[in-house]
Write a protein that binds this DNA or RNA. Sequence first.
DNA 1: GATTAGCACTCTTCTCTTCCGAGTGCCAAC
DNA 2: GTTGGCACTCGGAAGAGAAGAGTGCTAATC
Lengths: 350, 350
Amino acid sequence: MELDDRKKRVLQAIVDDYVATNEPVGSKSLIERHDFRVSSATLRNDMAELERLGFIEKPHTSAGRIPSDRGYREYVDSLMKIDTLSPKEQEEIESNISGTVDEAAELIKSATHTLSEATGFVSLSMSPRLRKSFLKQIKILMIEPGKALVVLVLSAGVVKDKIVRIPNFFTDEQMIKLSGAIEKNLTGKALDEITFVTVETAAKDTEIPNPLLKQVLYEAYTAIKQADQLSIYLEGEHKMLAYPDFGSLGRARDLLGTLSDSGMVAGYVNEMENLATSTGKKDSYMIRIGQEITLEGLDDCSFITATYNMGDTVSGNIGVIGPKRMDYSRVISKMDFVKKKLNEELKKLT
Amino acid sequence: MELDDRKKRVLQAIVDDYVATNEPVGSKSLIERHDFRVSSATLRNDMAELERLGFIEKPHTSAGRIPSDRGYREYVDSLMKIDTLSPKEQEEIESNISGTVDEAAELIKSATHTLSEATGFVSLSMSPRLRKSFLKQIKILMIEPGKALVVLVLSAGVVKDKIVRIPNFFTDEQMIKLSGAIEKNLTGKALDEITFVTVETAAKDTEIPNPLLKQVLYEAYTAIKQADQLSIYLEGEHKMLAYPDFGSLGRARDLLGTLSDSGMVAGYVNEMENLATSTGKKDSYMIRIGQEITLEGLDDCSFITATYNMGDTVSGNIGVIGPKRMDYSRVISKMDFVKKKLNEELKKLT
DNA sequence: GATTAGCACTCTTCTCTTCCGAGTGCCAAC
DNA sequence: GTTGGCACTCGGAAGAGAAGAGTGCTAATC
């Protein structure tokens, strides 16, 4: 079912007007605000058809129309045109992201912050998926008897550390020897290539009595595995309260409650990303609208994500969550620009 | 102006009832719910007096009374009695905090989480004030030309690291030598004893050409100074939406907006802590009620903090922010218990 | 002097009704 | 296919009571 040209224009106009005013759009106001050159009765017929097809709906009998999820979907898929940012907007974003930060995590955080500020919505970032990154350095430092620090330096400027327990009588020299051996054998390996066996093998020629060794190796292995755990960073949750779309406190509570469970949100983003990768759909951004989002309380939201890259093998996501009644074009172009800048800056770090 | 016994009981009953019901309390319902053995008219006289003294107020002429900030203040200062937790409550908290965590930061986070869960309010923790902690280890590791990692191990199980830029042609050996020299000379020093001069002196006998050295030392110094920056962790902000006390979306927005500025909240907590220390008032907890809180949007909140300790010299704060119409006794006893458990667990780490 | 009963008064809240207007769907005409 | 016209629907605003909870005050009582 293809929409004819005028119906497309009508749907587009309804979305635009509704986004701008937050009022259901009637046939008469459409005529007033747009140059349709037909009468309101004609639009009424078109609108009835659009409703029959599921693109728009009525809050109640005697109100105007609002876009349905499907209407928004059609809008973002084929109707809207993405405009470019003004130099001023670009500069604002640029000045916030570029900087003197030396750690990737900081950079990503500041991009997330910028994104929230620029859009006025909730923004988020997922930590890079480090499975494919490789070990540049691994050191195990004795802190005190029974305690050591494992420090991992990964490609792309990422540093992780973890305090681990070790047998009390493990000595300094033993640790230095062990650390050297592990480093020598594991450096250059991708995280997902490293198994417990790999670590054990790496330590084989250290001549440290086995029972002692095993626990330390296990802790080191855990530290390595833990490094590629996904984490999420959310910002600007409170901004959602400013939108009348979540008028009732109940809805707002559900929404913020869900967002506060960052593990759940992270899981969802990850799922979306995997789905997109596996189905080969790789636009520069991904949108989920309203009911398409399976998280509780986000029925009135849209969720837009994009992928940033650190080097060739490592990537993560940034994203925006706002009311589905949002100016998609602006938000997407802003996110796109933030992503671009973030990628550039990340490149400088490697 | 001392209140007579019955007036105290009346005030106490008003606070208790109001906290329980969220309804302004009238003389009649007071009689019904409590065993005053006088008539409602008598209580009306008492209430008029309490109002004249500023302990209670009327939302409007024909409503009951609600406690004023001053009323709550009197209540927490001299009327309430803090009850102990049931074994079940204790166990719930205990099982959440004690655990196998090896890093202090993790432990503090989990205590904060537990606190929010147990009270149903926003909870927060401030990172330990590390000025007085001492360096157990400091290592500078080369990552690649132009980049190094400074790792600090502080007393009380705290590890900090920071990537720093260094001159490109700084070599591996130079770094090892430098790292050793700095470590040898700075270990055991408290963070606030370390100045740039100290660091420079520590590196004096390395025989590395001066112009090179200076930048690295400065970066190392920065890393050290940065380690004692305060940070704050907030949790459960969305829970505030569940309380009718913040009925209007506007108020809720102000509140969450303020809480989202964690720097500001951290500054306020720090200020409170300093004030308490300097005036010598050292209760096991501190309370700020309503207007006493100078943060915007927290007029209807109370802010309760306590201090946790890591070793003899290092401490930080945990706290709760809830509606001022809260069950102070329960909240305080819970916070107190969380604090106690946290202190115990922190002790195990050192 | 403190306490009490009684009563007039105040003010919010809830419900019911009415009214208005924006918007619709449909029909007949163009 | 498009248009003008018109009856109809429904939500929201505005207003009018009525109910109810609570107060302050006065005069009587302990």
